[in-house]
Design a protein around this nucleic acid. Structure first.
Lengths: 338, 338
DNA sequence: ATGAAAGCGCTAACAC
DNA sequence: GTGTTAGCGCTTTCAT
């Protein structure tokens, strides 16, 4: 590959002149600029990003750290991040932590030692120790999805209380009074916010929240299946279930079918998020969807701000998107009392 | 961050000794080795990969270039690649070409100029010019999924004829004689191989292939929906449909439902590939699945061979996996003649 | 066994 | 405006 030296030799200038000229053509005479650009063209010169990175102390790479690639929104997230990163001439690397504390830390360590320009993290560890670890990172960091309380950096996510309020009030309006909630992993920010939105909306609708109807599905389809089985075989079973994500909703739907209940005739179902192939699932799920592409763009834009201003201490920013309600046929009025 | 100089100073040796000692402890006396490792530990030394890359002329990064992140197997593919790459201390970057010729070329150019160690490509462009472009790459390359005829490099994929033969013979055995095939994008290797497997199996089963029952669904769910609509509204409609991928199968299923046909009572359906949580789709699809994780591992292993032996001309290798048949309830005997 | 020195390709002071 | 020079952190001859 052609180096800056080849260009300099051909244009009969020094390498620093080439470097300066190619940065912003304003510091050199038009004639030399032309000679240089022509020479660069002739030898097919592309600056070596590795050398640039060594000089700069960090590379034009942004690391995305995610809990699981099984998440249905993961493809859209990556596509959005890659699109924005590309506009800033950055490449995107991807790492999966499999929702493991050790792996999350180790992954971030690797990324930092690789001198990536910045990191977009969807955290699954919320311990104070981990927050401290993240706070001490020198590498620019933007957190998405799970907000980590006390961490001074940018966050992009959705209004989780609102998301659950949308679904809950819809079911209340249909006449449901006993509503079950298969919640996400206990302790995670999104899980707790969603539970809170659930409780508050019920209370505001005049229904006393029954804590035994709120179960932990660990954001996992199989666990949710088991939990739905338990909920639906109780004598005082709920007439509707809200799952905190779509994987759990599909698990619950499976349980409903396996128990020979009809959805929505016997049990209504609703969830947060959807899947790309949602249109062929019967019944169509009533859902609230996150604007994933916008979250990806916003997070990447935040990150690039930090990458491009490495010395300024940018105050933590927050971007909370409003999810969108999409009515489906999985929710209907509860069956008449037997 | 601590540099090799910090370690050298603390261990009271030269930087070259540190470098040699940390490479393989065999060239230095045990005492100095200990001093050096202790010092490295004390200052928290990690070699700067960027500097190593500059020296080596290429980085410990492998680029994955894929047509679309919507593909349901994309998450599993990435997870598999990342896992194997990690064992070789490589990071994985991801780029999407949106199935566009220009973008596929430009993306590969960027990756090469970034001096990635190697590239795993799932190509969507099969022109001779593109093959020539790929053949001239200096960067190690492994192709997956779509084989490019005439390209001298490693390939990993599945036996596409066999995949279609499995599905076709199953439907023949059930008694179907008019079977439609929603094929992938015309001209792509997988599409053509699958069509070929379809024709041959029909012929072997004593059924003359009707070319009008083979339609181009472009590997796209919406296009497949339209094509299924056309197939199913013909007076001589097929009694079964095989889709060349799952997105198209789901599109076809939607069409079947919208036309108020029952699957499998009126129309049987089968496809290649599946989606996570396929179990909540009714009816359960009869499918043939690719061993994506194994494909990912094999491709990455091939690539690492090339990365680790940059000067040897490794002869092109090929790994063809056998897909797995998974019977579902979407295929049944055809309805009795009216 | 250890060290000195060159250089990977580039950028940025600092001269002139 | 343009060139000289000194590194960024590392690996690798080549001496000693």
């Amino acid at each position: 590959m052609a180096t800056i030296r080849d260009v300099a030799k051909m244009a009969k200038v020094s390498i620093s002149t080439v470097s300066v000229a190619l940065k912003d053509g304003t510091q050199v005479t038009p004639e030399t600029l032309k000679r240089i650009t022509d020479a660069a063209e002739a030898v097919g010169y592309t600056p070596n990003p590795v050398a640039q990175s060594l000089k700069a102390g960090r590379s034009k790479l942004i690391g995305v750290v995610i809990g699981s690639m099984q998440n249905p929104w993961f493809g859209d997230l990556m596509a959005g991040i890659e699109e924005t990163a590309q506009q800033h001439h950055h490449l995107v690397t991807l790492s999966e932590t499999r929702m493991d504390l050790e792996r999350e830390r180790a992954t971030i360590d690797v990324l930092c030692s690789q001198r990536v320009g910045g990191i977009i993290l969807s955290p699954y560890v919320t311990t104070a120790e981990h927050v401290k670890f993240l706070a001490e990172l020198k590498t620019p960091l933007v957190v998405i999805d799970q907000k980590l309380e006390g961490l001074q950096t940018d966050f992009v996510g959705i209004d989780n209380e609102l998301a659950m309020a949308m679904l809950t009030s819809q079911l209340l309006r249909l006449g449901h009074r006993r509503i079950g909630h298969i919640a996400g992993t206990t302790g995670l920010w999104t899980s707790e916010r969603r539970k809170q939105g659930f409780r508050e909306t019920l209370a505001a609708g005049g229904v006393e929240p029954d804590e035994t109807l709120i179960v932990d599905g660990q954001y996992d389809g199989q666990v949710a299946y088991d939990q739905a089985m338990r909920l639906l075989t109780r004598p005082d079973r709920p007439t509707a279930i809200i799952a905190a994500n779509v994987l759990m909703a599909l698990g619950a739907l499976q349980a409903i079918n396996d128990l020979n209940f009809k959805c929505p005739d016997d049990i209504s179902l609703a969830s947060i998020d959807t899947v790309p192939w949602a249109s062929v699932i019967h019944p169509q799920l009533t859902v609230v969807v996150q604007p994933i592409a916008e979250i990806a763009h916003a997070a990447t834009a935040f990150l690039m701000d930090r990458v491009n201003a490495p010395h300024e201490a940018i105050a933590p920013r927050e971007r909370i998107f409003t999810p969108k309600f999409v009515a489906g046929s999985s929710s209907a009025p509860p069956p008449a009392r037997a």
